[in-house]
Deep mutational scan, measured.
Amino acid sequence: MQRVNMIMAESPGLITICLLGYLLSAECTVFLDHENANKILNRPKRYNSGKLEEFVQGNLERECMEEKCSFEEAREVFENTERTTEFWKQYVDGDQCESNPCLNGGSCKDDINSYECWCPFGFEGKNCELDVTCNIKNGRCEQFCKNSADNKVVCSCTEGYRLAENQKSCEPAVPFPCGRVSVSQTSKLTRAETVFPDVDYVNSTEAETILDNITQSTQSFNDFTRVVGGEDAKPGQFPWQVVLNGKVDAFCGGSIVNEKWIVTAAHCVETGVKITVVAGEHNIEETEHTEQKRNVIRIIPHHNYNAAINKYNHDIALLELDEPLVLNSYVTPICIADKEYTNIFLKFGSGYVSGWGRVFHKGRSALVLQYLRVPLVDRATCLRSTKFTIYNNMFCAGFHEGGRDSCQGDSGGPHVTEVEGTSFLTGIISWGEECAMKGKYGIYTKVSRYVNWIKEKTKLT
């Protein structure tokens, strides 16, 4: 034993070699072989497995989906700052455009905790909710729209109204504003409101030439003092309507412009014939205590009207009353817009006519005020429907199939267009061939041609 100890002390290297040989010859039971080890760690190889990531292109799944990435790591994937920024906006807080917040056709661009709407022409605001041009839906104005110097929408209202708090709607500024039905039992019968379409306001006024200088022999019209197929109006439903009495009662109609003036057809009036105007009328054979009678003290036909040349060209006249009318729910003026808007309103496509005229061709006159909704007829169809001249200051309205029309005794009465609950004068009943005849239409004086003249002559002093 002493000898062994001496050998170990003198030859430590020998001992180490012996131990190493023993270990190498022993069977290893701690580690699995290569094949079995792979069965336990069965993990798919990654895209760049075996390579240094710093030297390969980034992978979106590896960089940002398996674990949260930084902007720089995302930049490695896209290799483009702009594309990385677009991805980053949604990656950080989701897609803010998912709810489609942009209105009126706006395009949404996502941002971090926010979004941006790219608005089409005519709109602005956070969600493109603000109209900035009158060309689109009248700028959301209830009545009139004008573009300011910086191309912003400025709404306005006709006389007797003021802008509401929203700067879009119009509200009454006087007790009985024009064009409004205020009798409670008839307010439910107000005709369907007309909503502004998209309009090209630059070209809204037709490029028409008034044929002022045409000389033409007097034409022989049949029954051209021209509501057939209409309905009984309720008291106060058309408070701007008046009836004219002269040699015979209810020979023509008219509309209240203001307390002192009536507008009617020029062919209705004769110099030297006494005319009485009755406002607030409903049943011409009954006294309903809503009527107001006034005498006409002055007749002003349009300066281009000449019955000797043509009885229905420039067929418009103004009547001055001896005493002002007292405005109330049964006696209310009709609204008159400017030339541009009167023309736009007419193009809405349908209007209402009213009167006490004959209820059928050569038949009896109506006792109760009649009204009828009539569609506008395109000019080409209008011209083809008659052998008589249709001037540019006239328009056609009615039904091709016949059966409904204005008729004798309705002449001078109103053709009105309702705009968001307020009625505007767009025409004056003038003439036609018979009444409600198939293929024939009622012919009306186009008020847009005469609004400046009306307003100039009827100013209240």
Rank of each mutant, 00 (worst) to 15 (best):
F395H: 01
T287P: 09
F345I: 08
T461R: 08
V368H: 11
C128E: 03
P101T: 06
V277Q: 00
G122L: 05
F55M: 14
A337P: 03
Q167F: 11
T287W: 14
F424K: 00
E129D: 11
T29G: 15
G355L: 07
R294Q: 02
S11Y: 08
T158V: 14
C18L: 14
V263W: 01
K152C: 06
S385D: 14
I275C: 04
R83N: 12
E270H: 07
E76D: 03
N452K: 11
S406E: 15
I300N: 03
L14F: 14
G403Q: 13
N310W: 04
V359F: 11
G351D: 01
Y201L: 08
K39W: 05
T389G: 15
V181Y: 07
E66Q: 08
G413V: 08
W240Y: 03
R43Q: 02
R294M: 02
F345R: 01
A266P: 01
N5Q: 12
N127H: 15
I136N: 13
G357S: 15
I214K: 11
K45D: 00
H361C: 05
G105M: 08
T445Q: 05
C252E: 00
V419D: 02
I299K: 08
L189M: 08
W261V: 02
R294L: 00
H289L: 07
K347M: 09
I15N: 04
R379I: 14
G413N: 06
A366M: 09
R3T: 09
G230Y: 11
V331K: 00
E159P: 07
F224G: 12
P235N: 05
T85I: 10
T276C: 05
L325C: 01
L23Q: 03
L369S: 12
V181A: 15
T225N: 15
P172M: 06
P175Y: 05
V263N: 02
I297C: 05
V451H: 04
F121M: 10
E10S: 14
I344A: 15
S220C: 06
Y341V: 05
I390L: 15
F196T: 10
C157H: 00
F144R: 00
Q57K: 01
Y305W: 10
S156T: 13
L372M: 13
K311D: 04
F123Y: 13
S385Y: 15
K247V: 13
A436M: 15
L369K: 15
W118P: 05
V447Y: 00
V92R: 10
L460A: 08
A173S: 14
Y305P: 02
T190H: 14
D111L: 14
D198K: 08
V248G: 14
T290I: 07
D93R: 13
D131I: 10
A436F: 07
V77R: 02
N393I: 02
C407K: 04
A9R: 13
C97L: 02
G13V: 13
Y391F: 12
G421E: 05
